[in-house]
Design a binder for these strands. Structure first.
Lengths: 130, 130, 130, 130
DNA sequence: GTGGTCTAGACCACG
DNA sequence: GTGGTCTAGACCACC
């Protein structure tokens, strides 16, 4: 698994791992049931403390993105966490609002934003096909 | 200036202020050159620590959104920070990607996302018109 | 013997076996003196490590639910572990308290809890009759 | 706050704290809005590592039982986590089933169980009144 | 071998 | 002062 960690990024390392894995799963580059690297192995690879990776895996498990099997390993969940419709909307609205505020601040029109959403959507799908 | 602070929101209070002011400026409810309330006044109004407001104003200044004039006060910048097109795209792409990743996890289709963008866009504009 | 194991359940596999056998004995679907499947056979059937089954049987023996006879096999104990009344109460009180604490957190009234106890009691008896 | 920790109990220390605080809140002995001891203070009192207390507080926060305010402290949540009805039932059914299995194993009749539920319910309420 | 818990102690972020 | 993150390294539980 290829992650890029920047310890000086401001975002906690465990969150960087969390977000990147989340993204790999969302884009399909990590398939359902696929095994993640063991905590210690990933820690060695990223040259960080195993506890930090463990924290990331813990959050991933709590979010329903991965499943841990004791004595066996960590796997991408077969069934993505079932969000209620209310929870779904809440999450998405939050993200959309943040996007729109930044867009307004940066002087981007609605159409420009929507175009970008379409473009990135395609790009991410292509990444998944790699 | 009318801000809503939620100390239990998880987002640091100084960031809540920062974001809301950013939003007020982006939407035009705070015009260029307009004066922001003094740090102490705003702190009293929001019943929070003046340091927290100061921190927010500091970040606003760093982002080029407001300008501090010694002995005078804090004003909305005349020239909103000129983002290069590259910087603009970088910021928006980041937000868009975060949105799409969450959408995928939550099982929302592209059309649903775009619809939500349109809806929120309208909603936010109405709020700004208040 | 028909057990359902879910490796992704969070509960250790050996405990899942332990609990289900306990339940089968409690409900009478496994009678006193009846022989349990050999460790290897059960491990093969459930596609798990024999050590795991052995661990479950060990705990069952420690709890007095089954008895191992060397060179012969594992049998449901004739005399189910005689719990003193004090021990009985201690165990049940613990469970009841955990239930009531969760019920309070979840906003369930006492009547609702008792209704659920009745309903599940019937349901479990029906399952046992299968 | 008066907690009893047994490091040799098998149950992880952070879970012992979690459960006891949960219980104190459920029984009303910790009221909504009340402040919990600072992490470091509780760690000193229990003679354990602050990280362990932090872990317990983290789980309490995730369960919606307490709320942390950065730079201020940890408080009992005003609004208990709003569980959907499905989630509520899932949690309670799990507890009820565990109770009934143990009851059967220990030879307790349904009526005896229900009586115990009533009795403990009253007892816990009395504890709250202390 | 896997992940889980705990300790000791440093440094940072928030108010 | 509060809580949050990270490291280093020990020991345990499960498969």
């Amino acid at each position: 698994m290829n992650l890029r960690i920047d310890p000086a990024d401001g975002v906690p390392i465990y969150l960087q791992i969390f977000n990147q894995v989340k993204r790999l799963v969302a884009s399909g580059r990590l398939s359902k049931g696929e095994e993640l690297p063991p905590i210690r192995a990933l820690a060695e690879q990223l040259i960080i403390n195993p506890n930090t990776v463990a924290r990331a895996y813990l959050e991933l498990e709590r979010s329903g993105i991965v499943t841990k099997r004791h004595g066996s390993g960590t796997y991408v969940s077969d069934e993505p966490a079932g969000f209620g419709n209310r929870e779904r909307l809440r999450i998405l609205t939050q993200r959309v609002d943040a996007l729109l505020v930044d867009a307004a601040h940066v002087g981007a029109a609605l159409d420009e934003v929507i175009d970008l959403v379409r473009v990135r959507s395609t790009t991410i799908l292509k990444e998944a096909a790699k």
